[in-house]
Amino acid sequence: MSAATEKIGAGTRCILAPTGNRVRILEEQTRRNEMMKKPPEKPKRVAARSPAKPAATVAAAAAVIIRCDVSADRSSDSSTSASSSGTGSIVKSAKTTSSRWKENGNGVVRAAEGVGALSLSPAVPLPVKRCDWITPTSEPLYTSFHDEEWGVPVHDDFKLLELLVYSQALAELSWPLILSKRAIFRKVFNDFDPTSVANLDDKRLPSVRLLSEPKVRAIVDNAKQMLKIQQEFGSFSNYCWRFVNHKPIKSGFRYARQVPSKTPKSDLMSRDLMQRGFRCVGPTVVYSFMQVSGLVNDHLVTCYRYNQCSHDFDKVPTAEDEAALVIA
């Protein structure tokens, strides 16, 4: 054959060499025919896989997660540093998920969920309201006197004499100064025992430098007249309380400017005391005595002691009650 290939029937066969290639061609033809007779194999199903993410994308996602965790762990520290630096900025956590509130056992209201929630401190008690003449700069001794003694009903004669002496001393001294020298007053006047004060030695009186000499002598003379009143009325307390029908007068003033320096009641009591031989007991002195001894409740209605002094009157036994107990 001169041609490189020849056609046999409908097929085509290759000529590889001048001799010996016919057997190989026949074997290949037989093998091809057998393969065509076999049923075709079903293709295997391969599970679809998502394309692999680039390494840069994975690294970026990991960095975001790390930043979120760090901000959640340090949210409280960041809030504290922001407030202390004075910038006024508020650090919000990425994990804040709710604004519901609840109260714990300490009375602190906090957010039920969320890292960046605000918290409220417990309620701070407000300061009590006192009379206007007691200010934040008032001396503690004076404030305590207002809270514990001034305006409290008194029925003890020793105490009444002491308060009368202090009311007379207001012409020369102030309340804070009188209270600072209270221990000296009690020592000089023998705890204000009317009998002891009435018997003070006249030679000793000039050495008492708490008040002027005329004022000290007036205190001694008043103690002598008090002994006479005790014999007539049973006690100096009964004599004093009869001017207010044995019940404190509630003034009910709202402002300090409304509080008077004297009243018709103090005028009446002052005149009666002078007629009995008392000295240095003008209407102003007597009204100060009525205020401090609780005969008049001149605490302002806005003062927390206004109602308490009225309740204290119901608790304090009168001289008549004590005498009834002794007889029983």
Results as ranks from 00 to 15, higher is better:
M1G: 07
A3H: 07
A3K: 07
G9V: 03
T12W: 07
C14F: 09
R24P: 01
E27I: 06
R31M: 14
N33Y: 11
N33Q: 14
M35C: 10
K42A: 13
K53D: 08
A56G: 00
V58T: 06
A61V: 07
D69F: 08
S71P: 01
R74H: 12
S75W: 00
S81W: 11
A82K: 11
T87L: 12
G88H: 11
S98E: 13
L120F: 15
P122V: 06
R130F: 05
W133V: 06
W133A: 02
P136S: 00
L141M: 07
P153M: 03
L163S: 04
L164E: 05
Y166K: 01
L170T: 00
E172N: 09
W175F: 00
L179Y: 03
K181M: 05
F185M: 14
D193A: 04
D193I: 04
S196L: 11
R209Q: 11
K224G: 09
Q231H: 13
G234R: 11
Y239M: 05
W241V: 03
R242S: 15
F243E: 02
N245E: 15
H246R: 08
I249A: 05
K250W: 10
D272C: 09
L273W: 06
Q275H: 09
C280G: 14
G282K: 07
G282F: 06
P283I: 10
V285L: 04
M290D: 04
V301S: 13
V301L: 14
F313V: 11
V316G: 06
E320W: 01
A324T: 09
A328V: 07
